[in-house]
Design a protein around this nucleic acid. Structure first.
Lengths: 202, 202
DNA sequence: GATGTATGGATTGAGCGTCGTCCCATCTTT
DNA sequence: AAAGATGGGACGACGCTCAATCCATACATC
């Protein structure tokens, strides 16, 4: 089993992902090409296809790592204070992360799978697991809620955050919310939670 | 001044926009190409560039028309009922429109201007004007709010709606909110408004 | 009025550079 | 020798450009 390479397959995979991430972080998705990646890692374009099925597969890997980094970041948020306060800090951390990595976050928003190629299950799972810090922080507030209501509240929070961050990142859509996205996040979280408290307090 | 054409410049522009819209509506942005458009309108690819600066210019035109259609749709929402009810109906109409035109709405979400080319002002203005039905419907609820708070509330509502609709449309991001987006919209609007009412009721 | 001709915008389509992807000859280690 | 790793040319499609061509009009001539 002849191996010519200096790098193991895993190392090569790592090099490619790193180079591709650098390109996107610097130039956005439009700057990414198989030839440019190959140039940076000193391999030929064809070699990329020994490691990844295609460029979308590679992009999905970049996105997955970004989601992992976001999850780590949310884990670092301290757990003290009132539930409202904690939720605000979670939301702020989420927003901060997207603003620190605008080009990479944009990748997540603009990239689409080509028709016919499906989003793998591990990716969907990773996305779904981002909900748990929110649901955890939300539970102490929702004693009187049934399971379905809790789930719905978490979904709504997540969707709202997603809306604010994507408006803040993709300047194409934000003649509105670009400045003071932090303000919008706080307004959204505190007001929505305040509304939740109303529900069973009639 | 010889004109060879069957069509006036305006007619040709119309034909091109229509063909391009059809393509996107059927195959998404990835199916759109100058050559395919040209084939459908029976002109050569080069002719497109007499009418549009480039494909991004054309795509922006498609998007603008989509926003116009959305604005018309929101105008049709009846104005009766409580402000809450009216806001819910506005939000539902917004969601319904995006779900009736998933591929076109996706265009709005995934398309980006190439680096260096700016989003024209008329486009930003069109986007901004989508806020006014929301602010109008919101005002009766916010008597005790100052101008800044009103604006903030409208922004938050808009961003939240945007989040829910884009999760519902771009299946890449929605292992979560895909089903029952309508439920999420209603939960969001009613709960957020309920929270707003709390603010000056202490 | 009929005919010829010059004008100049409209249109074409080959061509440039780039892209993702494929594939096979080649290399290198076992 | 065997077999996996690699290089790099090739293919079709892409956005976009531009010199060449076309033809409806405007004018000149008879």
């Amino acid at each position: 089993m002849g191996r010519r390479s200096i790098h193991t397959s895993d190392e090569l995979r790592e090099l490619i992902v790193q180079a591709a991430t650098d390109i996107v972080d610097h130039d956005g998705l439009s700057g990414l090409s198989a030839r440019e990646i190959a140039k940076r890692v000193n391999y030929s374009p064809g070699t990329l296809y020994n490691v990844f099925d295609n460029l979308d597969d590679l992009v999905l890997t970049i996105e997955a790592r970004l989601l992992d980094r976001l999850a780590e970041r949310l884990d670092l948020v301290e757990s003290g204070g009132t539930p409202q306060h904690r939720l605000c800090r979670l939301a702020d951390a989420y927003l901060a992360f997207t603003q620190e990595n605008p080009k990479l976050w944009n990748l997540l928003l603009e990239h689409r799978m080509p028709t016919g190629r499906e989003i793998p299950d591990w990716y969907r799972a990773k996305l779904g697991s981002l909900l748990t810090p929110l649901t955890d922080a939300l539970t102490p507030l929702l004693d009187s809620f049934d399971a379905q209501e809790k789930e719905q509240a978490a979904r709504t929070l997540w969707a709202g955050l997603h809306g604010i961050t994507s408006l803040s990142t993709a300047d194409k859509l934000s003649p509105i919310a670009n400045h003071a996205a932090g303000q919008t996040v706080d307004d959204f979280v505190t007001t929505y939670i305040s509304g939740l408290k109303n529900r069973h307090a009639n």
